[in-house]
Design a binder for these strands. Structure first.
Lengths: 253, 253
DNA sequence: GAGGTCAGGTTGTCATTACAACTGGTTTTG
DNA sequence: CAAAACCAGTTGTAATGACAACCTGACCTC
C-alpha cells in the first residue's frame, strides 16, 4: 500500500543550503511523528519515492538511512521499509538537561554553588587531557524544574574555555548551548551511568532523605577536533529522574 | 600525513559475501584499535584510499561512515578524517549481559528463580502488544559473575516464543543468544535506566543491605518485523554495575 | 607586519546506472 | 495435494562522474 501520499506536498527546496536528503528525512520524520504515516505501514518503495520527488534513489536511501539510524523505521530486505510501531522514540541525545527541560515547558532555573579555578583533580586530569598540576575551570550547579531540585551538576573545563563559559551566562542557560554559541561543536561523549546513596550534603541540596538512591552520570565530551571539552559528574534524585534511550543494532547504511 | 600504510595488506575479498564497505570498515577498525592507526592521525583521504584499494569513493565513504557512527573517527569538512583520540569507545550494544560477561572472561552463571506462564500484567500488556488477559511466558533469573550476584532479571515474552526459549537453555546461555539462534533478529530496543532502593527480597538475593541503591533497567525489544519480543525489568547492585555508553551527535552519512 | 586573497586539497552532495540478494506469493510439477 | 520452481517486487551493493562547500597555508597587498 502506498503510504506516501502526504509527501508530494513536502516540496523539496533545491535552492536551500539544507541537503535534499536531510530535507526529506525531516519531512518524513514529521510525517511519522504526526501520525500521517501510521505505525507499521509501509513507506512507498525507494524508486517510487524518487520518482515522486524527482530525486535520485541514492538520495532517497540516504534520507531513509537517517531515519533508520534513529530507530524510526525498519528496513527489510526484499520487503520494504516499515514505520516502527507505537511510540518508542527516545534518543539519548547529545543535549543539555536545560534544553530538554525547556523544551518540555518546565522552565528550568539554575543555582550556582561554585565557580572558580582549581588545580585539576587526578581523575579529571587524564580525562580532560591536561597535565597534572594545571588549573581548570570548575563549577557546581543545582538545576531546578517546577521549583524542585532535579540535578546536582559538577563540571570541569579547560581554562581555555573560560572566556566562553562565564558565571553569568551559566545562570541563564545550559552549558551545551553556551559552548555551541562559543563555536565549540560537540561531536562525541562517553558516559557512565550508575547509582549510589545520597551523601548528607547532596541529600540536603536535592531535598531527599539522606542515604536515598541517586542516579549518577559521569560524562566526558569531545568536540569536532577531538579535544576534550568537558568533564561532568552529575547526580539526580532517582524518584524524579531516569534516562530514556533507544538502542538500534547496527544497520550501517 | 599518510597513515594508511597498514591497509594495503588488508586485502579486500571480492568473492566474499561480506560487503566491501564492511570489510574495509572492519579492517580500519582493527587498525585503529590495535594502534596501527594512531590517535589523532589523519586517515588517507578518500580518493587515495579508493585508489589504493581499487574500489570506488562511495564505497570508501560508506566504510568511513560506519566508523564515524561508532565514534571511532571524526570527519571534518575540508580537513580530512581523524582517528578519535584516547580510548573512549564503548557502544551501548544491543547485546546480552551474559555475552558481555563471557567476553570479559567472567564465566557467568545463571540461577533460575521462576519459569512459568502467567496472565500478562497490565503494564507489560501494552508494551508487548498482547491483549489483556492473555498469558505470557515469565521467568526470573539471578545472574552471577565470579561467584557474586550481579543482576536480578525478570522477563516477559509472548507465548509464541516458548518453543525457542526453554528453561534448560536459559541456564546455560543468555536470552539474546537464544533468540538469535531461534531466528529472531533483534533490531531495536527502548530502555529506561533509573535507580531505587533495594526491597528486602532483592537485597537478600543480590547480597546487599536492604535499602541500598540499585540500578534499574526496563527494556522493550523489537525484532526485524517490528514485533515486540521481550519485556525486561532488571536490577543491579549499584556498587557492582554501571552502564557505559558513547553518544555521537548526528553525523548522518 | 597585519590583513586580505587565492589556490589546492579535502569532504559533502547528488545523479545515473547496473546488478545482486532476498521475500512472498503464484505457478508448475511430481 | 504437497513440494518445488519460478517470478515480480523490493532493498542491498557498487561504480562513475560531476560539482559544491569548506579549510588551510601561502602569497600578495597595504
Amino acid at each position: 500500500m502506498g503510504a506516501g501520499r502526504g509527501l508530494r506536498d513536502a516540496v523539496l527546496d533545491r535552492t536551500s543550503p539544507v541537503p535534499l536528503y536531510y530535507q526529506l528525512a525531516q519531512s518524513l520524520e514529521t510525517a511519522i511523528r504526526s501520525g500521517r504515516l501510521s505505525s507499521g505501514s509501509h513507506l512507498d518503495n525507494e524508486l517510487e519515492l524518487a520518482r515522486q520527488l524527482r530525486i535520485s534513489r541514492p538520495t532517497v536511501r540516504r534520507a531513509i538511512a537517517v531515519l533508520a539510524n534513529r530507530g524510526l523505521v525498519i528496513r527489510r530486505h526484499g520487503i520494504g521499509t516499515l514505520v516502527v510501531p507505537v511510540k518508542i522514540r527516545r534518543p539519548v541525545r547529545l543535549s543539555s538537561l536545560y534544553d530538554d527541560l525547556a523544551e518540555a515547558g518546565q522552565a528550568p532555573t539554575t543555582r550556582m554553588l561554585a565557580f572558580e579555578t582549581v588545580p585539576v583533580p587526578a581523575e579529571v586530569a587524564s580525562s580532560l587531557q591536561v597535565s597534572r598540576g594545571a588549573r581548570v575551570l570548575h563549577f557546581e550547579r543545582l538545576r531546578m524544574a517546577s521549583g524542585q531540585p532535579i540535578a546536582l551538576m559538577r563540571n570541569f573545563l579547560p581554562l581555555s574555555l573560560a572566556e566562553i563559559v562565564t558565571e553569568g551566562d551559566l545562570r541563564n542557560t545550559g552549558l551545551y548551548r553556551l559552548l555551541q554559541r562559543g563555536g565549540i561543536h560537540l561531536r562525541l561523549a562517553s558516559q557512565s551511568i550508575g547509582a549510589r546513596s545520597a551523601q548528607p550534603r547532596e541529600a540536603k541540596l536535592l531535598k531527599v532523605p539522606s542515604g536515598s538512591p541517586l542516579l549518577t552520570m559521569r560524562r566526558i565530551s569531545y568536540d569536532d577536533a577531538g579535544r576534550s571539552v568537558e568533564y561532568g559528574s552529575h547526580v539526580y534524585p532517582a524518584d524524579r529522574y531516569s534516562f530514556e534511550m533507544s538502542v538500534v543494532s547496527d544497520s550501517t547504511t
